[in-house]
Design a protein around this nucleic acid. Sequence first.
DNA 1: TCAAATAGGGATATTGTATATCCGTAATTA
DNA 2: TAATTACGGATATACAATATCCCTATTTGA
Lengths: 162, 162
Amino acid sequence: MILKSQVEWALHCCAILSSLPEGRYLSTKALAELHGLPKEYLSKALQSLSQAGLVHTTLGPSGGYRLAKAPNELTFLDVVEAVEGGGRTFVCQNIRANNPCRPKGFCESGPCAVARVMWEADEAWRSALRKVTFADLVQTLEAEVDPAIWSGTFQWVLKRAG
Amino acid sequence: MILKSQVEWALHCCAILSSLPEGRYLSTKALAELHGLPKEYLSKALQSLSQAGLVHTTLGPSGGYRLAKAPNELTFLDVVEAVEGGGRTFVCQNIRANNPCRPKGFCESGPCAVARVMWEADEAWRSALRKVTFADLVQTLEAEVDPAIWSGTFQWVLKRAG
DNA sequence: TCAAATAGGGATATTGTATATCCGTAATTA
DNA sequence: TAATTACGGATATACAATATCCCTATTTGA
Ligand code: SF4
Ligand code: SF4
């Protein structure tokens, strides 16, 4: 059970977009170059973000992406669910219904204890991701990343932002 | 990102083994029949439990599986990790290393903020599963499952347990 | 006005993992 | 001794993740 790599890509892209000045847009091409990723495939991840309403887009030269909300309104969970989907990690196949001791046509009353425990764990996972915003992330990165690289990257991005 | 169905199978099998009288063993064949599952494939899941040391096995006729620990010592996390593996759901591909603004050979100092957030969420998930034991589960099931089916299943199992 | 650049979407190929089955071996029991 | 079991290896199948390609509509800017 591993998250698709698109999740990492989308998280990094949103981190970059979070520190983009108001009103500027950054293209798929720039984001792909910056992270060393296949442009066409990264585009799919960004489209997922767009469909989820997390980013805003413009067309044409100098077009691209910007965040649709302020960084402190955008959570990790938003991004993860946009590309990974909001489904449960535990899908119940209702194998209890195969129990030969049950009378035919016996109807179960709701999800059983096993499934509920697993779903609570899912919720704990989501809850942890919901607590962290991209404002938090940028703050941490600013403190941790080498200042030369940080500002170098910022300049690199600004030069390409439309 | 979906858990394999083996996880559900293993959880159900451990639930059954939890209410098995001390010293008795239940075979793959019986467990497969009870849940309506392919015997050969279910066997792989049970072998995972065995390799993880969660169950004890005996060979020959009347052989099979029993829990290696008491039900209140066996957690959901034990079983889930035995069949799904203990790896992280977020695997960092270190795409920050592709940043063209970085000097060549620049060496990152440990995992970055993005990965840490994701790993903390994983830990929250694991923590939730670690809190629930099979003693808890059996207690819940006894209270919820139709008494006729519960005791019927118990008899069915006893008849086949070696 | 027009050429270039962009997001977006559909089609498709490739890869990898989950699912499932089959068979041989060693151990154990009745 | 014959039947039954766990176990592991090999293999086949189904499906999802990964990756690329191509076409369209839109917008920019020269
Ligand atoms: S016991 Fe729970 S998890 Fe298992 S099949 Fe029934 S509802 Fe699903
Ligand atoms: S920023 Fe974090 S998650 Fe992304 S590649 Fe670097 S270490 Fe991995």
